[in-house]
Design a protein around this nucleic acid. Structure first.
Lengths: 196, 196
DNA sequence: GTCTATACACCGATAGAC
DNA sequence: GTCTATCGGTGTATAGAC
């Protein structure tokens, strides 16, 4: 968690190489399936068929690995959102990104970890702010020529994000009370301001 | 030849005793401050000034302790919600419960743990369903004599819960984009259907 | 780049004395 | 009820050979 000051740093494997990705892939699977309590260098190594020592050739510490894992994921997600902006029906695309985002279990783990790993916290903050801005932009444009409701675009963005998160998390748990109703509200909203 | 399959297993300390509560209190603090990776019998014991062995006198396993911790918390929260139902202005009270619920870090940890501890998952599901039902009842009653909007009570309950969760979590992280706007929307909604 | 081998701390859980 | 003592296992991280 600390030991921030490091010697000229030891030799390191290159970011973006095959093994680097394989390690992050394995880490994602473990995080999703077993939680961060099981996210260890030994487990990652075993899962991808290398020795534990190699993990520390690619990542200085486990915290570094976690941060790299989230950053790789958030870059992908933000790119999807930015692409959605340019589409025919940006609102539907963006809602699709929200609701089909990397699964709820993974996100739950990152949210918990972000409270304890400073570097991850920074990345998460950046991701939330960036994606909210993208969504607000899309909503703003879509609502420009409509009668304004009482919820401003950035407020709608916040509602969308938090709803999608809860819908996914609860569906994962096996709770569904209210889901049907909310899904219909969203559907109607989209049909109204962004007809197919 | 004994292996505790049919025996009530070993002696256990009484649920609800002073030490039992002290252990859960300590566990809550650790979970909030350091995360479940640090939630160990040794840390709990040290924090409340007893020896590690004693934790296993009160709880058979660490998982049992986690489940007991959540159950104690959820009983309290549900009681607060039920009390809110009986108040003068139930909607405001219930929103207050949502937004001032035990802090976001703690909840994040429980959400992550629920994906990996079966007994906890069951408790969490029960808590969500129960509190959603209470909230829907309150909203239903409050909206009875009003013009119906397009969001049914249980949908509003779901929006409220997920929004409160996100507002708390993001505030904890240090994100505030859209918070002011959403807070105003809620305030206006309450002013309209439940005037002071 | 990948490995063997290792240091050292800490984990859950139990046996059994007082 | 609370303790000492201990088991077998796993964690991060490093040294250094090939």
């Amino acid at each position: 968690m600390n030991k921030a000051v490091r010697e000229p740093s030891r030799r390191m494997g290159p970011e973006g190489s095959a093994n680097w990705h394989a390690m992050l892939d394995g880490a994602e699977d473990i995080l999703r399936e077993e939680g961060y309590g099981a996210l260890t260098s030994r487990n990652i190594a075993e899962r991808i068929g290398v020795k534990q020592r190699l993990v520390y050739y690619y990542f200085q510490t486990m915290d570094d690995l976690v941060v790299a894992m989230f950053r790789r994921l958030s870059v992908r997600e933000l790119e999807r959102s930015r692409q959605a902006l340019k589409s025919e029906r940006p609102l539907r695309e963006i809602w699709d990104v929200c609701i089909h985002t990397s699964d709820a279990r993974l996100i739950s783990e990152f949210m918990a970890l972000a409270n304890h790993i400073e570097g991850l916290r920074t990345e998460v903050i950046h991701f939330i702010e960036e994606s909210r801005a993208i969504q607000a932009r899309a909503l703003s444009a879509a609502l420009k020529n409509k009668a304004k409701g009482r919820v401003p675009p950035i407020g709608l963005a916040m509602i969308a994000t938090s709803l999608a998160l809860s819908l996914n998390r609860e569906a994962e748990l096996g709770v569904s009370a209210g889901h049907k109703e909310i899904t219909k509200v969203i559907k109607d909203f989209l049909a109204e301001i962004e007809p197919k």
